[in-house]
Design a protein around this nucleic acid. Structure first.
Length: 902
RNA sequence: GGGCGAUUAGCUCAGUCGGUUAGAGCGCAUGCCUCACAUGCAUGAGGUCAGAGGUUCGAGUCCUCUAUCGCCCACCA
């Protein structure tokens, strides 16, 4: 082992990954004799590169998996990636654009080949990065949402839902990008605050054209598709107009004036033009009031189904034209500036157009019921629990899920349409209907067995209704990416096949994820789990925070505040990255980081490294097992540190069980650095060469604490542990058993050492406060304690730099001395000439009057209060009484000292 | 507009069932290159727990209101 005083993680981490991997330690197989513990990874986008959010998310999962693995569970962590429909398609389209091509130029099949090609080449980047972080996934099981098995799961579920009557096809307002000619999910059409104009139009009443109602709009061109005007039912201004009609200018259509609560009487004129095919709110109004839906725009943003002068105009050209024409007719009442949020295509920044289109939906209410129940009855719990409310609130108001997407990269919708049947069916109802029109199947009739709609796992060769073998055409759309991810916890284990893996590892245990995908993903997985398997997909959902910079902003490329985890790993090591991430976040709170913060993790690694270096030097491996020497060979220090180790084991274990990862990491840090290194090693240093039992204890304590540290800092703990490994232990720390508290409990030795630490600290404090030169002679007399054992006394004198240490019943104050007060007693430090008497007197006088006396008064006040002594728990009262005794003693000590100085 | 959360040291945050003198890391100050570690050691300064009221023997902790900030959802045509 390299004995450099500087720990270099790069020398250690990569080789360890290779060792672990070679030994197959990440792998898990069903084993009925052991209890499984399973986590499925939230699959990162296949286009992804590791960012701090991933680093945090996967560090937490790895902590859990490593902890449970050491506890003896058969721990499986299933990795994989998500095909991320639109995101991935965009990446490939961008690379195409560099060649001056669009996806349409290649055609569907060639384009998809290109995407697959891309995935082969770059799709494992993030997996490689996760490995580097130390993620102990079973990498053999890496899945991709477009794998054959998972695609089969998708198709199966689609069929299952169809058969259960939970699928329908209906019209819906979507975000449409006229440039990309595709629908966009809401999150793909971010709203930007935009300075626009609010135009007020006068719509003349049909009956009395000299009277009119004024409506306001930001998108004048949509007025060509208006099919109503709406006002609030209680708005006094419009009571008489409700039910009347207006004549739509430029078009001439008669529009009913309807009343609906959705209208805000405060905004604009309190009257709204209703364009059901081009606005989400209007769409709802249209459905509610059975209005006509007129789509006035083509895929590329030109006007259609409008009077001749406007037909074919670009939407913004048309906007100007409409305004000019209304102005000429004196129907443009006024124009005001208006700041509003407008959706923009996140790829090309084009203003999106809300537009009616035909989409597939899943009826969610029936699916939600068991998923609500499971959370209510505690089958599934959220950590932190406040997310329970958020989840339930959303689930109880759940909307149907639009699952079709007009892109190419994804699972193609397994539906075929029979042209013959549909033509036939439609023309019965509407003689003017032509097949090239939108195929509209109304929600109410779409459940099953609709003529012409064939839902099938494989391409049908014949229409089951009319027997036609031609004109069967597959739906052009693909499914929402989440339609595959919601099956992830069981599709990755082999579902819909009945596999051993599924039997054994499902339901999984813990899901670790971020709050922003509770709705998209977590809730849907729970619903899918119950729908497909009748069982929850997991029992605990751990929601961690968002990684932010120090000013609280999310990390994003556009803000330029991104810290690259791989850069941190290169600079400080994966352990430092993991440690700092985990200790920077309490349960469920956001994580605020800057690159300097990772120095803390690095410094801790280095500290550990050096402590181990020291121990390996002074206490080389002894033959035999890791068993501790018999109790009678242990020094006070050994007994003390072993008891502290036991407490640390208990605390750390409890913290991990509660998913308080920061607490667990802090606890081991505190023990290793501030108890073991700062005190124990210092105490035993001078005698270690002559105390074989002490050497064994040193190795034992470090070895055991490395086990505690391993889930958080797997690399350095493994590297050092292998050097300290007891002869009878497993080869790898990673699979070594989790420590259990030993038999040795806190005892008299522990109290002695804690007392000694206080004495030493108090003496050092005085030395520093009064600037006592290192060479000055310092004698100490302690009171209120029996004589410490020789070893202890020796270390007190050594570590506090004391010449002689005496213990007497009463430590008399005298000139040239300073009293010290500590929890286990008090004493006097004789400093002779090395002390400034005036300064000492002032300091002690202040301590007396500003600190001790007010505290005593407070305590006495409480004890005089009968309400307190009668109603407070007895142990609290007793505590106060003890406090009074101690304070009284201290005050007496200080007073006698001050008197002696006079 | 609806919901959730936060406000504790200069900074970033802990603080369990209401009960000793409210903690940590970083930063700062002072002194140390002590033979594991200067990525270190020792000591220290720094807090009206956002504000007001209430419950209680006792409130950082529970309740109400106010202020400020953040997040999610729905969004004004």
């Amino acid at each position: 082992m390299d004995l450099s005083p500087r720990y270099n993680p790069l020398d250690v981490e990569e080789p360890l990954l290779a060792q672990w991997n070679e030994a197959g330690l990440f792998q898990a197989e069903p084993d009925p004799t052991r209890t499984p513990y399973t986590i499925v990874i939230p699959p990162p986008n296949v286009t992804g590169i590791l960012h701090m959010g991933h680093a945090l998310n996967n560090t937490i999962q790895d902590i859990l998996i490593r902890f449970k693995r050491m506890q003896g569970f058969n721990a499986l962590w299933v990795p994989g990636t998500d095909h991320a429909g639109i995101a991935t398609q965009n990446v490939v389209e961008k690379s195409l654009a560099k060649e001056g091509k669009r996806r349409q130029d290649l055609g569907r099949e060639a384009f998809l080949n290109r995407v697959w090609q891309w995935r082969e080449q770059y799709g494992s980047t993030i997996i490689t990065q996760l490995k580097r972080l130390g993620a102990s996934c079973d990498w053999r099981r890496t899945r991709f949402t477009m794998d054959d098995g998972l695609s089969q799961a998708v198709t199966d579920v689609f069929l299952k839902l169809y058969e259960a009557g939970l699928l329908y096809r209906g019209n819906y307002i979507i975000n449409w990008c006229p440039r990309c000619q595709t629908a966009l999910a809401d999150e793909e059409a971010p709203r930007k605050e935009t300075q626009g104009k609010l135009y007020h139009f006068r719509y003349p009443l049909s009956e009395t054209p000299d009277r009119s109602i004024v409506v306001a709009t930001t998108r004048p061109e949509t007025m060509l598709g208006d099919t109503a005007v709406a006002v609030h039912p209680n708005d006094p201004r419009y009571q008489s107009l409700i039910g009347q009609t207006v004549r739509l200018p430029l078009v001439g259509r008669e529009l009913r004036i309807i009343a609906d609560e959705a209208v805000d009487p405060e905004f604009g004129t309190g009257a709204v033009k209703v364009t059901p095919a081009h606005d989400p709110v209007d769409f709802q109004l249209g459905k509610k009031h059975s209005l006509e839906f007129i789509n006035v725009m083509t895929d590329d943003g030109r006007m259609a189904n409008v009077p001749a002068p406007y037909d074919g105009l670009d939407r913004f050209v048309c906007r100007k034209r409409v305004l000019e024409d209304l102005e000429r007719q004196e129907l443009l009442e006024k124009t005001t500036d208006h700041l509003h949020n407008v959706g923009h295509c996140y790829r090309c920044d084009t203003v999106i157009e809300p537009r009616l289109s035909l989409q597939w939906f899943v009826r969610m209410k029936p699916l939600a019921e068991p998923a609500i129940q499971a959370v209510k009855d505690g089958t599934i719990t959220f950590i932190p629990s406040r997310w329970t409310k958020v989840y339930l609130n959303w689930m109880e108001n759940i909307q149907d899920w639009c699952i079709s997407r007009q892109i190419w990269w994804g699972h193609r919708i397994p539906v075929w349409y029979c042209n013959a049947c549909i033509t036939n069916e439609k023309s019965k109802k509407d003689p003017n209907w032509k097949p090239e029109n939108i195929i509209g199947i109304q929600p109410t009739s779409a459940e099953r067995g609709v003529a012409g709609v064939i839902v099938s796992k494989t391409p049908p060769t014949q229409c089951p209704t009319c027997g036609s073998v031609v004109g069967l055409k597959q739906d052009e759309d693909v499914l929402d990416t989440w339609f595959s991810s919601w099956l992830w916890p069981f599709s990755t284990l082999g579902w819909p096949q009945h596999t051993k893996d599924l039997d054994y590892f499902y339901p999984t245990n813990t899901l670790v994820t971020a709050p922003e995908i509770i709705f998209f993903w977590v809730a849907r997985m729970i619903m899918a789990g119950y729908f497909c398997l009748g069982k929850p997909p997991f029992t605990t959902v751990y929601i961690h925070g968002t990684v932010r910079d120090l000013s609280g902003r999310k990390m994003s490329k556009s803000l330029g505040n991104v810290i690259d985890p791989l850069e941190i790993i290169k600079q400080f090591g994966a352990d430092a990255l993991r440690y700092t991430l985990v200790t920077s976040t309490a349960v469920g709170t956001d994580v605020f980081i800057s690159d300097e913060k990772f120095v803390v993790g690095r410094n801790f690694s280095n500290k550990l490294w050096n402590a181990a270096r020291f121990i390996l030097q002074v206490a080389p491996a002894a033959p035999g097992t890791g068993a501790l020497p018999p109790a009678e060979q242990l020094s006070v220090f050994d007994r003390w540190i072993l008891a502290e180790l036991n407490r640390t084991i208990a605390d750390t274990t409890a913290a991990l069980e509660r998913c308080h990862f920061d607490e667990a990491a802090d606890r081991v840090y505190e023990f290793l650095w501030h108890q073991f290194c700062d005190w124990h090693i210092e105490f035993v240093k001078p005698t270690i060469t002559t105390m074989p039992a002490g050497r064994q204890v040193l190795r034992h304590v470090l070895e055991q604490s490395l086990r505690l540290l391993h889930p958080v800092m797997p690399f350095i703990s493994e590297a050092l542990w292998q050097q300290l490994r007891p002869a009878d232990a497993t080869k790898f720390l990673m699979t070594a058993p989790w420590p259990l508290p030993g038999a040795l409990q806190d005892d008299e030795a522990g109290r002695q050492v804690r007392w000694a630490i206080q004495v030493i600290t108090a003496i050092r404090s005085v030395r520093a406060e009064f600037r006592v030169p290192a060479a000055a002679r310092v004698d100490v007399t302690l009171a209120g304690h029996s004589a410490p054992d020789a070893a202890l006394a020796e270390q007190i004198t050594r570590l506090a730099g004391v010449h002689t240490l005496r213990v007497s019943a009463k430590a008399a104050a005298a000139r040239g001395s300073v009293p010290i007060l500590f929890d286990g007693g008090s004493g006097v430090i004789h400093l002779g000439d090395a002390i400034d008497l005036e300064q000492a007197r002032h300091a002690k006088q202040r301590e007396l009057t500003e600190e001790l006396q007010p505290r005593l008064q407070a305590v006495e006040g409480r004890l005089r209060n009968e309400a307190f002594t009668k109603s407070a728990p007895p142990d609290i009262v007793q505590q106060e009484q003890e406090k009074r005794t101690i304070l009284t003693q201290r005050i007496a000590t200080l007073e006698s000292y001050l008197n002696a100085l006079r």
